[in-house]
Simulated scan of single mutants.
Amino acid sequence: MSAATVERRNARTAAVMALIVAAMIGLAFASPPLYRAFCSATGFGGTPLRADKAPGAIVGQVGVRFDANTHPGLPWRFEPEQTTVHVAPGAQTKIFYRAQNLSARTITAQAAFNVSPDQVGKYFKKIQCFCFSEQTLKPGESVDMPVLFFVDPAIKKDPDTKDIDEITLSYTFYPVETVNAAR
């Protein structure tokens, strides 16, 4: 084998390896949004699904418990206005969370959410929710934020979820870094 042939093979191998490394780096950066899209589409990991409207109530009840948390670095009081409701599957329900800025400065935050137990995520459907947008509160300001949801009646037909009688919807607010916050 000639030196030129060996050199071409080495160059081709180096190019293939560089492409593999580039693909792996690209996949690493694409993984979080792809995972979020997967969870949003399937309800995996307790991720509630979005809906446009509720289908209508059926006979039966499911308890829904509301949980509220804040990141340790966020000086807000955040709590549900009611801690539990009992809903008929398929019935549209509206509840409120209240947030109050306890600091002397304007703060922007955004909520992350989940539903437990995990297997009910695909049956808990939110129509309207404050978690899809940033919330900015001035010093001492408080705001009531609605959550409009329903529990899909199919929850009672699924062998993995038919005996679940309580769902927990949990939110955690995190501070959002903004350009103005650095000034």
Rank of each mutant, 00 (worst) to 15 (best):
A15C: 10
I155Y: 05
F66S: 11
T168M: 13
D52M: 09
T47Y: 02
V16S: 09
L102W: 01
A181T: 13
G60F: 11
P32T: 01
F173G: 04
Q128G: 07
G121P: 03
T93I: 09
S2A: 11
T42A: 06
L74Y: 02
M24K: 07
I127N: 00
R65A: 14
N114S: 13
C39Q: 08
R8N: 06
F124P: 01
S103T: 00
V59M: 11
A28T: 15
E166D: 15
T136S: 14
A18Q: 10
C131K: 03
A112K: 13
I25K: 08
A14F: 13
I25T: 08
L137P: 05
T108P: 06
P146V: 00
F113K: 12
A11H: 08
I20C: 12
A88T: 04
A41P: 06
E79F: 14
D144P: 03
T13D: 12
E79N: 10
G46R: 03
P139D: 06
A104F: 15
R105G: 11
S31V: 10
F113Y: 14
V62H: 00
F132D: 02
T172C: 09
R77C: 11
I167W: 12
A54H: 12
A14G: 10
G140F: 08
T161H: 07
F130W: 05
T42R: 09
Q61N: 15
Q82W: 10
V21D: 12
T13F: 09
G60D: 08
Q92E: 15
A91G: 08
A37Q: 11
T161V: 04
I107A: 00
G45P: 04
G60W: 10
H71Y: 07
M17Q: 05
S103A: 00
P55R: 05
G60L: 12
